[in-house]
Computed example of a mutant assay.
Amino acid sequence: MIYGIGTDLCDIRRITATLARKGDRFAEKVLGPSEIQVFRARRTRVESRGISYLATRFSAKEAFSKAIGLGMHMPMTWRACEILNLPSGKPEIRLHGELARWFSARGLVAHVTVTDEADHAASFVVVETQPLPPEAAP
């Protein structure tokens, strides 16, 4: 059963301008520990690839916060939610700390997709409740 749906559209030019104003502090505020490593590696190779990566993660976290109905309020924080790619390239949401405990206690599972073009990054998140195992059903 669907618990929530969230979507977000991010203007990559705004992310670029924010990075220019605030430097890497902005990326360090938004990205979790594993994401920041990917961001730095991509940005080192091609500046625009790193910025697009940051924009897609920003967008996905906004969409996730909408899907769980919390917005950017505790326990939802930027760094407690990471959007990482599996070896296949499929993005997945990894949660940490209090947010992970909150999410797990509700028996939720999340699905995410991200995309970007020259000026925009977009994401879509569906959060659903996990079906009860047969032995837990009434």
Rank of each mutant, 00 (worst) to 15 (best):
R106M: 15
W102H: 12
K66A: 03
K29R: 14
F58G: 09
M74C: 07
R21A: 09
P133R: 13
S48A: 08
G71A: 08
V30N: 10
I5H: 09
P138R: 13
G69N: 11
A137P: 01
L31S: 09
Q37I: 07
G107A: 11
S123V: 07
I83R: 09
L31W: 08
T44K: 13
S123E: 00
K90D: 10
M76Y: 02
R79H: 09
R25H: 10
R45S: 12
S34P: 01
H96L: 06
P87H: 11
K29S: 12
T56V: 11
P138M: 03
A121L: 04
M1P: 13
Q130W: 06
E28W: 01
L86D: 12
A67H: 08
R49V: 00
E62F: 01
Y53E: 01
G6L: 06
M74L: 03
Y3L: 10
L84Q: 11
I2D: 01
G23V: 02
S104L: 12
L19R: 08
P33H: 13
R57N: 07
A60T: 00
E92T: 00
L84C: 09
V46S: 02
I12M: 11
D24H: 08
T129S: 15
A63E: 05
K61Q: 11
A20E: 12
A67E: 08
L108D: 13
P131S: 15
L70T: 14
L70N: 13
T18P: 02
Y53M: 00
I68N: 04
V30M: 11
G4A: 10
F39P: 04
P75N: 04
H73T: 14
H111Y: 15
I5D: 10
L31F: 05
F64H: 05
W78Q: 14
I5P: 01
G6I: 05
A110M: 12
H120Y: 15
T115L: 04
G6P: 09
S88V: 02
Y53G: 05
T56P: 04
L132M: 15
F103G: 05
A110R: 02
R49A: 04
Y3E: 14
F58Q: 06
E28G: 03
R25W: 07
E28F: 02
H111K: 03
P131V: 08
E128F: 01
E47M: 00
R42Y: 09
A55I: 03
F26L: 09
W78F: 12
A122E: 10
H73L: 02
R106I: 02
K66N: 10
M72P: 03
T113G: 14
R101A: 14
P75E: 07
C81R: 00
D24V: 07
P133H: 15
E135R: 15
N85E: 08
A17T: 06
E62H: 01
R45M: 04
D8T: 03
P87M: 14
F64P: 04
A136K: 14
A63R: 01
L108Q: 15
Y53Q: 06
